[in-house]
């Protein structure tokens, strides 16, 4: 027994400098990173409705039953989140790859193009919301003006106001906002592809598509998979984009899980139910991540 302690002590003594460097951040994250997560999970088993009382009352799984089986919007919200998260990620991978492929060529002014590309990524979301809502404005927006001028549409369309156009439009804007990051990561990968491999593929008569399919993709696959995973998780948890564009409306047609958590907690003040939705969302993400990592063969990394 004593020997175990003394061996732990001696290992600690050998490494105390390293621990001293790590400690501030680790302690900070235990308090302000781990505690909030645990607290949400614990809270999900309590009833806490600030309109009724400031006391939490334990009620076991009742909150889960309510959200899963009686909540009129939960499943809609979940499917909205899936559309948003997977839809944006897939589109971002495509456009991001295209941009990365173009930028990987020997071109003049690559830095300028890259700089331009990254502006949407870094711009505050509320400004993105203003800019796009202005372009899409039903009565004086330029999109309606030009589309009707070239005869694609006859009547002006409220792009963000009806259920047929709202998701396609939101996905396009989300892609516009997120593709630069994707492109950067993939560009880094493509630049690692040996020039000689591409040349010998050209010698063998491969066209651009074949080169991408058989030479580039296998090499950048690990980066692609990891970046796509990160993007999926980040969009899944992304509150501000939808909030700035539509606030989840009209009705519940674009409400995603993060919007739902926020409004349940801070408009209805049902913090307990907010915690249930958050925990469920976290479980879905965890399951997705595990399956993704297994299927994608990312375990080795």
């Amino acid at each position: 027994m004593i020997s175990i302690f003394s061996s732990i002590y001696s290992r600690f003594k050998e490494n105390w400098v390293a621990y001293a460097f790590m400690a501030p951040l680790v302690i900070f994250l235990l308090i302000f990173g781990a505690y909030p997560v645990l607290n949400v999970i614990v809270l999900s088993f309590f009833k806490l409705d600030l309109y009724e009382s400031f006391q939490r009352v334990f009620h076991g799984l009742a909150g889960y039953r309510k959200i899963l089986f009686q909540d009129p919007h939960f499943w809609r919200v979940l499917s909205n989140t899936a559309i948003y998260s997977f839809g944006s990620t897939i589109l971002q991978v495509f456009v991001g790859f295209l941009a990365a492929w173009l930028l990987s060529k020997k071109i003049k002014g690559r830095a300028i193009f890259r700089g331009i590309m990254l502006i949407p990524w870094v711009t505050p979301i509320i400004v993105v919301g203003i800019a796009w809502r202005w372009m899409l404005n039903p009565s004086v927006g330029m999109l309606n003006f030009y589309l009707s001028k070239i005869g694609i549409i006859n009547n002006y369309i409220a792009w963000l106001g009806n259920e047929t156009t709202i998701w396609p439009v939101l996905l396009i804007i989300s892609t516009w906002k997120g593709y630069p990051y994707m492109a950067l990561m993939m560009l880094a990968g493509i630049q690692d592809v040996p020039e000689s491999l591409l040349e010998s593929a050209s010698m063998d008569g491969a066209n651009a598509l074949q080169k991408i399919r058989y030479v580039v993709l296998p090499i950048i696959k690990p980066i692609l998979l990891i970046t796509a995973l990160t993007a999926t998780l980040l969009t899944w948890n992304n509150f501000r984009f939808i909030y700035a564009m539509t606030k989840g409306g009209p009705g519940y047609s674009t409400t995603t899980i993060s919007i739902y958590i926020q409004s349940r907690s801070f408009q209805d003040f049902k913090l307990g139910e907010g915690a249930v939705i958050a925990t469920l969302s976290f479980l879905v993400l965890l399951a997705f991540t595990v399956v993704y990592i297994r299927r994608g063969g990312l375990e080795a990394q």
């Binding site: 994250l29 990173g33 781990a34 993060s258 907690s265 801070f266």
Partner: peptide, 24 residues
């Protein structure tokens, strides 16, 4: 484990923990 611990907290931000932050 420390590295993973730090990485994992990128996942638990924003809406998922906002209720806890309100409590804090």
């Amino acid at each position: 484990i420390t590295g993973i611990f730090i990485l994992v907290f990128q996942m638990f931000t924003g809406p998922v923990v906002i209720v806890s932050w309100y409590n804090i």
